[in-house]
């Protein structure tokens, strides 16, 4: 299930929108006579023909991409440029802004949509999407499925728990509480994530009950509802999903983890067969880093550095 986003400013739909004449706010600033003359010109048959020809040529030449972004919560309606509704959508908003900037640099006509994390790689594989902004860690298993762009930022994994559960488990555990020392507890993880894959591997050995959920937000909700004792999630996403006002507030437990595919660099995913697109994408990302637009974009959403 995907949610479509409003088209970006540079899309042909917006350009065609200019032909709506004097109602366009762009004409409001013009003197009335000039605005009328311009509107008359724009509404004539010749410009319409020219625009159609230009659009047809543009359509034939422009790169068309379907971009999918990992959904942060069940009902987000994030739009770049608007005030952010909550911190939980920040990463999705960042991904949307990044996707738009990448599309602009690729001179591509992009169609944006949200999808659950688990649907992104299958969607890329089945050619339903060309670019996936799902904060994917680069693993050998995923490399067999999709191609990866240059790194965006770096992630680690961490356990989350309510303070009470954490204390209880800490008392039971002889040493420091880590994912390896957990026994006979319910652990929530996002379906299709590396944390989920890790838990699947160790669940039987460590007698863990694995609770598969769609988003980190759902994992936190499961903690809140006492449906899970721990949530094993990406640290940044967990931070974004945490609400400091919530009582009791979940806390991070144990050290951050980067081994066993639980941490590392995060990438955009795309089809393995689309080598040319990957090269163009890497070039665009390199340019963004070099001209400083990537760090500025990151800082618009996050007060710290994760790349």
């Amino acid at each position: 299930m995907t949610a479509h986003l409003p088209p970006p400013i540079c899309s042909p739909v917006r350009i065609a929108g200019l032909r709506r004449g004097c109602e366009s706010p762009r004409f409001a600033a013009l003197p009335q006579a000039a605005a009328k003359a311009l509107a008359k010109t724009l509404n004539g048959p010749l410009p319409a023909f020219c625009c159609a020809a230009l659009l047809a040529a543009g359509s034939a030449l422009a790169l068309e991409l379907r971009v999918v972004i990992s959904r942060a919560a069940e009902n987000p309606q994030p739009v770049a440029g608007q005030a952010m509704a909550s911190r939980s959508t920040l990463l999705a908003d960042f991904n949307l802004a990044l996707a738009r900037e990448v599309c602009r640099r690729l001179r591509a006509r992009c169609e944006y949509s949200y999808a659950p994390f688990a649907e992104i790689i299958p969607g890329i594989e089945s050619k339903r999407f060309e670019l996936g902004f799902g904060n994917h860690l680069r693993t050998a298993a995923r490399e067999a499925q999709v191609a990866f762009s240059n790194p965006l930022w770096r992630s680690s994994s961490r356990l989350l728990a309510l303070p009470g559960a954490a204390l209880r488990m800490a008392r039971q555990s002889a040493g420091e509480l880590t994912i390896e020392t957990l026994r006979e507890v319910r652990v929530a993880a996002v379906r299709g994530s590396q944390q989920h894959a890790y838990l699947q591997r160790v669940a039987k050995t460590q007698e863990l009950e694995l609770i598969e959920l769609a988003t980190v937000g759902e994992c936190l909700l499961a903690l809140d509802n006492q449906e899970a004792d721990f949530a094993f999630v990406p640290t940044l996403i967990a931070y974004l999903a945490l609400d400091a006002r919530a009582r009791p507030t979940p806390i991070f437990v144990g050290p951050g983890l980067v081994d066993d595919g639980l941490g590392g660099s995060v990438h955009i995913v795309l089809a393995r067969t689309d080598e040319k697109l990957r090269q163009q994408l890497d070039l665009a990302l390199d340019e963004m880093r070099q001209d400083g637009s990537y760090p500025r974009l990151w800082r618009r959403y996050f007060p710290f550095d994760m790349y």
């Binding site: 770096r154 680690s156 507030t249």
Partner: peptide, 22 residues
């Protein structure tokens, strides 16, 4: 308390940063 909790979240986040863990 919310601001302090928020700062604590960032401390946790930064201490989990892969570069710090490396």
């Amino acid at each position: 308390p919310v601001a302090r909790q928020q700062a604590l979240f960032i401390v946790s986040l930064l201490s989990s940063h892969p570069a710090m863990l490396a």
